[in-house]
Design a binder for these strands. Sequence first.
RNA 1: GGCCCCAUCGUCUAAUGGCUAGGACAGCACGCUUUCAAUGUGUAAAUACGGGUUCGAUUCCCGUUGGGGCCGCCA
Length: 474
Amino acid sequence: MSNSAQIRVRIAPSPTGFFNIATARGALYNWLFAKQNNGVFILRIEDTDRERSEQIYDQDIIDSLTWLGLEYAEFYRQTERTDIYKKHLQTLLDSKRAFYCPHTHAELEHESETQKQNKEPLRHICSVRDKNQTTGIIRIKNNETARITINDTIRGSIEFDPTLLGDFSIAKSLEEVLYNFAVTVDDCEMQISHVIRGEDHISNTPKQILIGRALGFAEPQWAHLPLLLGKDRSKLSKRHGGLSIKEYREQGYLREALINFIALLGWHPSADADGKPEKELFTILELLKAFSLDKIQKSGAIAAPEKLDWFNREYIKSLSTAELTKRGLAFITAETRKKLTPAMLEKCVILFRKRITRLSELESGIKRIVDIPEYSKELLLWKGKLNYKKTSNNIDNIIILLSGIEQSTFSSKSAEVALLPLIEKEGKGSILWPLRAALSGQEASAGPFDFIDILGKDICISRLKKAYTILSTG
RNA sequence: GGCCCCAUCGUCUAAUGGCUAGGACAGCACGCUUUCAAUGUGUAAAUACGGGUUCGAUUCCCGUUGGGGCCGCCA
């Protein structure tokens, strides 16, 4: 493969908010495309707007990408490239393809007000574009009249009338370039072969093509992804809240689940020719095999959290006990951790593997096992059918039977064996309900044998005795 | 307002002219069951509308409607 044919793609987030799933999806698609083609995936932080850019967001981009496992081969920050932009800006100024526009905010505002009233396109065709001004912002002298055609991998060709753009701005000064200019220069300098980005940039593309032409750059291949939408179907943004990778991570969503979820938001492989049920679960390796740009959707997709929850449950269930423990530990407080032996922790992890949606639920789940709340004696009655005396008798019998088990062999298995005759005599509900209620102190909980397994003989007996007391006093 | 993009169940989507429009999630019902969960089975649910083209349109064309994006000295 010759050097010029190398696939080079990038994501270009701006550090003005936490890295969200829309950007993450763009990163995933770019990363997959690069990997598949032996190409290079680049991270370029677009921080030209110094007012709104913040250090924590800059760091969050890096952290999120790393956590997701989407490693990048090259890294750039636009504020560190001022000299490069300056050089190209000077070229345009020298060749009179750009000029200084001295018009004030107020003048520009008035102009667009008038255009709005006259139902004209909003644009600024500068009256002094040929007057060699030396102050103001820098604009492209847009003389293009022929329609601009964007060749888009996902959408086919899209046409624009360049005269509608007017003399659009490209820099506030020689040192402060604006988005469209910085993007165009960078994409060329970094030899980006494919620009794969959100659909919200379609309208920017003719501007970038015009800047590129003025500079004599080669045009990259365009591919505009459908937008990720909030519940209200508008473009995902901060006001939709809670959709940053950071937050998902903190809630205990697995990277595997997140990757799988976002991959399927706007992309889907063809139906299986064998008529097998369609596949929904994809590891990143499987995505690498199946992904292709031409199966990308054209319409926007709502990122519904229910599906993500399902993916997360699936991936949690698929994790080994050791791995789940390792990842889960970060979500368990030191205080709760202190109440658990390693063996108890492992049993809890096994129990909750099938019961939690997010890792963060581990803490409250374990607490409901190791801590027992205050409860009233009615709780111990199975569906209210049994009377207190009978229930009390049953609990007493349970205590006797469980006490008879050797400490060393005490387990759900041995307990089950020991209780079997009693269960057969009294009925499952009459024994298991009060047993479970006594061990959990809760209306709804995991099964009694789960408690027995995790808590061990001493705690179980003491909880049962307490239940007995509650029944006979209260 | 101008320009541009888009349109299959509630949501993500499959089917690119041809079987009763398929799957997944969510929902509902039932089974299992001491509760909760897990699980099994079943069920409801969509081609926005109107014209064409065609023997035949979810699929192709036109229009309407609807949704979205951009129009910044933000990215």
